[in-house]
Design a protein around this nucleic acid. Structure first.
Lengths: 343, 343
DNA sequence: CTGTTAGCGCCTTCAT
DNA sequence: ATGAAGGCGCTAACAG
């Protein structure tokens, strides 16, 4: 365990003081070129490396962004983290990662740990289980910027990044209508999550705008699992008036529905319409490949990081309306999971 | 921006000193129960939160593990990070994440930043581009534990976690032989990466052990992309002695191969054998679903974290042979991408 | 331009 | 069982 080289060591070698070395290394204008050069050379020679901990303690800034996500193993969140890190690093920020596994208690603990670590900002996607938001308000009280993405809550006054779920669902449903399907069902997600609520609303709006009647029995809810998608589709296929297409609020459920369609030999392109809502990368690879709504994973992370970087240092939470970035969804039409042979 | 509550504030309220408060909060046995209780209550009342930065500066320990991966958007690495974080957190460690995007320069920068941050350990999967390992040796010199996973290098003397690629490839190839295929080709990965070298060796060994002849023209190399898999399969199908099965060193290439097989109408189960090597989650969902080798993503992360936690504090790098955890691969046989109808 | 001094918040000897 | 004092490595205010 080698002892750390400090600015004092450099100072001693150069017969000067730590303050001068510090200034030289930080490119302070009051230091002469000659001195700067000597310091830099000695720093390299001694293999000096700044101690971020000490710097943070002194300056009150850590250059660390805390990121709280349900799980890094969910491809959507992995991609968002990728986006956040890429942008953050360009400005010298590091990422401290915390997973909740969808648990409220972990989320609370995560916020606490990150505050203990004096992170300069926190970026969060709310856990499914969370219904109490006091821990987020605590962050606000501490004056630490908090940014929500995807799983957001508009009532708390935090800046956020989302995609337009309503519009995405509207587009997905409209696409099915365009293809000539007329009895379109919807496998919805947990309605206490805004994203799923919006998708249901988008679905309804599309039906209405195009003169199709909305039927309560065409809505079956799932829990974002393949199994729930399978079961939901089974229910839908057994309806007296069997739907001819399904819009699933999420790709795993769409995938489950696809398994059921296969079981019923309905999976051949053109026989039955199916559109999902992307949070996974597999849509491209399954057969028939899945038409879906692009959730712009990486961009979402990038935007969240940029949002923080653009935040004012003072009066952080004084705006009456925090910035809200709404990414435009994009329909990814693949092969023919959603197309129809004859009208 | 509220001012932070410190142990001094608690001390003042209680007419005692910071030292006592610190001891009480750290459950030091020399503090009486009464005092401890009073301190704890006041801490809660004032909403005290320990400052990890200050603690780290003083103690020299940050309780942070630096993790360097090519990219969080690659599902394999996301899962590994998930595994690392889960285990680490149980022992109070946080994860500082750094992505290289497969760039050597980023990897070097990452190591440097993490050392600046005084992380207690670094867990790395080496970037594809890296051929110079001095930055890792620097970590060793600083006395910081470094653990490699998946993309490792045995010559550097670091503990590591891998799966047995040789065995995985051997199992995959043997499975195809068991199914009755006799002319099995291999789409290999970059041979300067040990994992791909081992997979090729495993493939060869399986052929040899079962009395099948190895043919140089049955090996086509790809670069871990779908496109390269497609092209490689195209080459293989045009051979004079067309193979009847393919073992791809990696799932994306297997997927590409599958596209080519579909184009040639060879994708129906039993007509042509295909096995991949998993780093993605889609194998389960494609049609026909892909037989593959389980790379134990999450476990790999868990084991890497456990490895660090079990490391001796002193004489870290004095062992002549660093621990090497070799996870056992597991063949995931799905549907019939790899089965054969008739011998 | 450069040196001196004084902490950031915490923990840990050394006293008492 | 508790206080006093010092310092982890760095930077900022105040001198010159």
């Amino acid at each position: 365990m080698k002892k750390r080289v400090t600015i004092h060591d450099i100072a001693k070698e150069l017969n000067t003081t730590a303050a001068t070395v510090s200034r030289a290394l930080n490119n302070n204008p009051s230091i002469g070129m000659a001195m700067k050069k000597r310091v830099q050379e000695m720093a390299k020679k001694l293999n000096y490396r700044q101690d971020r901990i000490a710097t943070s303690l002194r300056s009150g800034k850590t250059f660390v962004i805390g990121v709280i996500i349900p799980s890094a193993k969910i491809s959507f969140f992995g991609s968002v983290v990728h986006g956040i890190e890429s942008i953050a690093r360009k400005s010298g920020y590091q990422i401290l990662l915390f997973q909740t596994n969808e648990k409220y208690s972990n989320e609370k603990e995560g916020i606490n740990t990150l505050l203990q670590s004096n992170v300069d900002a926190i970026i969060v996607s709310i856990s499914k289980e969370t219904t109490n938001y006091d821990h987020f308000l605590e962050v606000k009280e501490q004056g630490v910027p908090l940014i929500l993405f995807d799983r957001t809550n508009d009532t708390l006054g935090f800046p956020s990044v989302v995609i337009d779920d309503f519009k995405g669902a509207y587009m997905a449903t409209s696409h099915l209508i365009d293809q000539g399907y007329t009895n379109i069902a919807h496998i919805c997600g947990q309605q206490h999550l805004k994203i799923f609520e919006d998708r249901l609303l988008g679905y309804k709006a599309a039906l209405e705008d195009r003169g199709l009647i909305f039927k309560e029995e065409n809505i079956v809810s799932g829990d974002v699992s393949i199994q729930s998608g399978e079961k939901a589709a089974e229910v839908l296929l057994n309806l007296a008036e069997r739907p001819d297409a399904i819009f699933a609020a999420e790709d795993f459920m769409a995938l489950g529905a696809l398994q059921t369609l296969k079981k019923h030999k309905l999976h051949h392109p053109g026989h039955f319409g199916l559109v999902g809502f992307a949070n996974e990368s597999f849509g491209e690879y399954i057969t028939p490949s899945l038409t879906t709504v692009n959730q712009r994973n990486i961009e979402m992370g990038e935007e969240a990081a940029k949002l923080f970087l653009s935040l004012p240092t003072k009066n952080l939470y004084n705006d009456q309306k925090p910035s809200k970035i709404i990414l435009k969804p994009e329909l990814i039409i693949r092969e023919s999971s959603s197309s129809k042979l004859s009208k």
